[in-house]
Write a protein that binds this DNA or RNA. Sequence first.
DNA 1: CTTAATGTTGTCTG
DNA 2: CCAGACAACATTAA
Length: 264
Amino acid sequence: VPELVEVESARALLEARTVGRTIKAVDAPDAWFLKRGTTAAGLRDALRGRTITAVRRRGKQIYVDTDGGEGPTFGLHLGMSGRVVVDGDEAGDPLIYASNRDVPAWRRFGLRFADGGAMWLRDPRRLGAVVLDPSESRLGPDATTLTLAQLREALRRGARAPIKAVLMDQSRVAGLGNLLVDEILWRAGIDPARLASTLDDDEQRALHRTIRSTVRLLLKRGGVHLGDHVEARTRGGRCPRDGAEMERRTIGGRTTYSCPAHQH
DNA sequence: CTTAATGTTGTCTG
DNA sequence: CCAGACAACATTAA
């Protein structure tokens, strides 16, 4: 469930349904899923007996705090196909490009609570991750609260890269992925291949407004796949705004759809 | 069977 | 050392 919008609904589900509950056991059957030095034994020792006190998010990263900010924190990343399940319930957003079936082998990480319930992270593609006490400084400012000054700094640092690559770089702006960036640039009328340094002041302001409004809109709609341009993401697809045939390219290493008629 | 998929990271190069 | 490009990672679904 990978972009900011889906990660936020996973965070909200965890906050509503796990805060205040005490961890009785940790299930981490897949060592490959534990990253940056995290081990199953380390997680078990750190988390057993702890009570969850808060669930935070920055970009696509979820942080779960235990015991009032003094206990350990663990990070959950949903990768390309990860999904959080609490007591058998998941967030309402649908997941495309991945199955929603509950195959036991896809439970890459889980917590059992003292009250008898459980949460787990299901990830068919196995590209998600669990990290104990993750560093929180590797991500840029979150896209939901991005200021114009922060956007300008991101553009300045990535001046010679395509604007799309800059917006997808999590160390510059956190939370935007392939679909969301295409939607934002489509709405802003900016060609995703333009080098970041070529945006003038007016375009920077317009882009900043569009990032914030688009993220807000899709949070409200409940999924990045509910954007207006998504239906045109197919070979031969037409721009919903002006009917031109969409252009398909690879930019920043990802499949990119844009409208040659109104994105410049 | 082939291709592509909402992502991150390590490696190579300039 | 910094930016940028790209392959690799693992697995499923169309």
